[in-house]
């Protein structure tokens, strides 16, 4: 289980080192065995939050605990797998050499078969003997995924796992997440793609401008979204037409609803838009 209590992270910017909050007083609990989606627009503070959880960035204030250990303590990462956004590997080393090295950094003994299983699950087994700098973006992402699931960790944290992947890659990656979900792993992933929300998540957290504006179960949030979209559609129908918007199709809300596939997407989009400072 991951617990964040009143976590704040500020960075000092400019010549005078003016404080700028990236994450503000964030309290969040990622429940064990569930998939939690962490949504928000670009620059909302999702990656910073994830980096604080995995111990890359020190929180300025507040507490972050993973299975009872402080996030900066290496013991917090004993049962944790992390897939960073846009991972990369050094030149001149083969996929198998890289994953073998990472397997030795774990506190468990990992045999060859376990390494092969992780590579097979991530769909990169076929390229294990190719130098990693020759990999495509999707292949690099898969190798990083194989590394993150190595040793069968209980908690998996994925930072924008689907970004930059083609539709086939996205589908395959989602399937892997489904498989991990079936194994009752605690998965916490960030995304700004709203379409990922419904099919993958048990719980949704929305972060805008470093502040948590929503943190609920998928059923509750879906119900809320349906009511919200319905109200929006009705208002769109009853909207007084101007010469510019003579048909409902020309109305802003109507277009928004038509653009997204589900009421949940419309609701999340509007939630982010309304809370985002320009």
């Amino acid at each position: 289980m991951i617990e964040l209590k009143n976590t704040t992270k500020y960075f000092r910017i400019g010549f005078f080192g003016i404080k700028k909050n990236a994450v503000e007083n964030l309290s969040l609990t990622v429940e064990a065995g569930k998939v939690t989606g962490f949504f928000g627009p670009n620059g909302a503070g999702k990656s910073t939050t994830i980096k604080m959880i995995v111990g890359l960035v020190h929180p300025s204030n507040g507490i972050i605990k993973i299975n009872g250990y402080d996030s900066m303590d290496y013991k917090a990462r004993l049962n944790l797998g992390y897939l960073p956004e846009n991972p990369s590997f050094p030149r001149g080393l083969k996929g198998i050499e890289i994953i073998s090295y990472y397997s030795k950094l774990l506190n468990k003994k990992i045999d060859k078969n376990e390494i092969y299983d992780a590579l097979k699950l991530a769909g990169i087994f076929y390229a294990k003997d190719i130098h990693a700098h020759k990999y495509s973006k999707g292949m690099t992402q898969r190798l990083a995924l194989a590394i993150s699931i190595l040793g069968d960790p209980e908690i998996l944290i994925f930072d924008e796992p689907l970004s930059g992947l083609d539709p086939i890659g996205r589908k395959e990656f989602k399937d892997i997440i489904f498989k991990l979900k079936e194994r009752r792993k605690t998965i916490f992933f960030s995304s700004h793609v709203l379409a990922d929300s419904k099919e993958l998540c048990d719980k949704i957290a929305v972060l805008v401008n470093g502040r948590l504006i929503k943190n609920e179960g998928i059923t509750a949030i879906e119900k809320e979204a349906e009511g919200y979209t319905e109200a929006k559609l009705n208002s769109s129908k009853n909207h007084e037409r101007t010469p510019d918007t003579t048909k409902p199709e020309q109305d802003k809300d109507y277009r928004l609803i038509a653009e997204y596939n589900t009421p949940l997407e419309v609701y999340l989009y509007d939630l982010m838009r309304k809370n985002k400072k320009n």
């Binding site: 890359l56 950094l105 993150s148």
Partner: peptide
């Protein structure tokens, strides 16, 4: 290059 991300997020000091 962010290759450090995978190293120090393992149980390593």
């Amino acid at each position: 290059k962010k290759s450090i991300f995978l190293s120090i997020t393992r149980p390593v000091k």
